[in-house]
C-alpha cells in the first residue's frame, strides 16, 4: 500500500521520548533513509510552539499540572496544543526534496489527507482558508503543526479520535477561540483506534506517492 514509506507505530510514548526518537528519525531521513510515517499517542501534555501567546494557557502551570498534564516547549510552528491518550499523533518524516519543496503545498496536502481520512468514517470535514487544521462545522477536530530541517519534515497531525475533550478547557487551542471535537463525539461512540491507523496509512499512501 505504501511501498515508499516506512510505517512505525510507537504506541503510547512520553512526549519528550517521542521527540528524541523523532529527531533521530529526521537525521536518518536527511542522510538518505526512506520517508517514515510514525504513529503514536502521548500521555497528556501541552506543547508550546514557537509562536505561543502566554494568554493561550488559561490556567496557571500548577493548576494544569495538578490535572496530570505536563507542559513542554517545542520547535514547531504554531501556538499551544494538547496531546492526550485517544488522540492519534501522526508524524510524517518526509523528505520534501522528493515531494516538492513547498511548505504551503505540504500543509495543504496534510489537510487533504485528514479530510479524506474522516470521510472514510462518514465524517464530513473541511479545511478553512487562513486557519490551519481540519474542522467539522465550527469545531476543530485535527490540529496541524510542522517543523522542517533540510527540507525533511517532523511534527505533524493530532487527530482527536477518542480524546478527553475536557482537557482542552485548559487552553485556547492554537491560540484560537475554537471548540475542539473528536470522532468519538461526532459518532456517539468510541472509535476503534486500529481502524483509524489503518485508514490514515492508506491515505498517506495515496497522497504521498
Amino acid at each position: 500500500m505504501t511501498p515508499n514509506i516506512i510505517i512505525e507505530d510507537w504506541g503510547l510514548i512520553n512526549y519528550l521520548d517521542g521527540l528524541e526518537r523523532q529527531r533521530k528519525c529526521v537525521q536518518r531521513v536527511i542522510e538518505g533513509a526512506a520517508d517514515h510515517l510514525i504513529l503514536c499517542e502521548h500521555p497528556a501534555v501541552l506543547t508550546l510552539g514557537r509562536m505561543t501567546n502566554p494568554r493561550s494557557l488559561l490556567y496557571e502551570r500548577k493548576e494544569i499540572e495538578a490535572r496530570g498534564v505536563t507542559i513542554e516547549r517545542v520547535d514547531r510552528g504554531g501556538d499551544v496544543t494538547l496531546h492526550a491518550p485517544g488522540q492519534l499523533i501522526v508524524y510524517p518524516v518526509f523528505n520534501l526534496n522528493k515531494h516538492g519543496k513547498d511548505l504551503k503545498a505540504y500543509m495543504e496536502e496534510l489537510e487533504e489527507v485528514a479530510v479524506d481520512l474522516l470521510k472514510n468514517f462518514g465524517i464530513l470535514a473541511i479545511s478553512i482558508c487562513g486557519q490551519r487544521g481540519v474542522f467539522v462545522g465550527p469545531d476543530k477536530i485535527i490540529s496541524i503543526g510542522v517543523g522542517v530541517r533540510k527540507w525533511v519534515t517532523y511534527h505533524g497531525l493530532g487527530i482527536n479520535v477518542n480524546t478527553d475533550l475536557s482537557l482542552f478547557d485548559l487552553i485556547k487551542p492554537c491560540g484560537l477561540n475554537v471548540r475542539m471535537t473528536s470522532m468519538q463525539k461526532i459518532k456517539g461512540h468510541a472509535m476503534p483506534m486500529a481502524d483509524v491507523k489503518t485508514k490514515i496509512i492508506e491515505q498517506f499512501g495515496k497522497h504521498f506517492k
Binding site: 514557537r50 510552528g77 510542522v146
Partner: peptide, 13 residues
C-alpha cells in the same frame, strides 16, 4: 543551524 523562520504553522530551520 542559525535561526528558525515560522510561517503558517510551519517552522523552518
Amino acid at each position: 543551524e542559525v535561526c528558525e523562520a515560522v510561517t503558517d504553522k510551519a517552522s523552518f530551520v
